[in-house]
């Protein structure tokens, strides 16, 4: 392992066993971090002076919202690599990320709605932040629907990639929407340019939960990409060998 050749793992048959080895570690990390994050969020972080205990939705809302945007960028990145270099695994990766990204977007919207009702008095408002996040959900769903509607996987990859790349423009719109337009939604709690506008323990709870969702996303995407690899490469010799050796796990 002195000189690790990363391109070695760019092929589905070499990535498949590597992913299999990584999944338990990311699962364990996700569970451990979620336990720590929830403990901080519910038992260490103080009551908010404005929002009381209702603000504790933040520990699931902000991490899912971050992941919804981050996963989209990663999905578009792999889709673009697949489009540019015609690498199979990159496109499979993009396809594997989409459902998890859509789920994170849904959870960000759902938890946001349950937070908005007691704090703003409305489940939903058509402001820039909420609307652009809803568009993100439609972009994920559109990506999946487009790929599902094309029988040839490589053509589906290319069509999906174009949609994913064009849709990236929406991510900075979501992120900066609270600065660019008037909104009920509060501004960023964490930013690089200034100190966080929240208690330290609240911040830690949020960051640990964000890491937990990150590890979860990696684990579940790796399981899905392994399924996609098997679906697409089922008639190859290496999958045959894999089944013959009984080493598919």
């Amino acid at each position: 392992m002195a000189k690790l050749n990363w391109f070695y793992f760019a092929a589905p048959n070499t990535f498949y066993p590597l992913a299999g080895k990584m999944i338990p570690w990311f699962t364990a990390a996700a569970l451990g971090l979620a336990a720590i994050g929830l403990y901080i969020g519910f038992f260490v972080a103080p009551t908010d002076f404005q929002q009381g205990e209702g603000y504790r939705i933040i520990f699931v809302h902000v991490p899912t919202a971050w992941m919804s945007m981050f996963l989209y960028v990663v999905m578009a990145f792999w889709a673009a690599i697949g489009l540019a270099f015609n690498t199979r695994l990159s496109s499979m990766m993009a396809q594997a990320i989409a459902p998890t990204g859509a789920l994170m977007t849904f959870l960000a919207l759902w938890t946001g709605s349950l937070w908005g009702k007691p704090m703003w008095g409305a489940w939903w408002v058509w402001d820039a932040r909420l609307t652009s996040e809803l568009i993100l959900l439609f972009l994920y769903i559109g990506f999946m629907a487009l790929q599902a509607s094309i029988d040839d996987p490589r053509r589906a990859d290319r069509a999906g990639a174009v949609l994913a790349i064009v849709g990236v423009i929406n991510v900075p719109i979501i992120y900066f929407s609270v600065q660019w337009w008037n909104t009920l939604h509060q501004g960023a709690s964490v930013s690089i340019t200034r100190s966080p506008s929240m208690a330290t323990t609240m911040l830690w709870g949020m960051l640990v939960m964000a890491l937990a969702f990150w590890m979860y996303s990696i684990a579940v995407v790796l399981v899905r990409v392994r399924a996609i690899i098997l679906e697409r490469e089922r008639n190859t010799d290496w999958v045959r060998d894999l089944k013959a050796r009984g080493a598919a796990k």
Partner: peptide, 16 residues
């Protein structure tokens, strides 16, 4: 869902 998909994909792959 994802575990079911993986198991199905593995089962559907033809054995030698």
């Amino acid at each position: 869902l994802v575990r079911t998909r993986f198991r199905r994909a593995l089962a559907a792959a033809p054995a030698p």
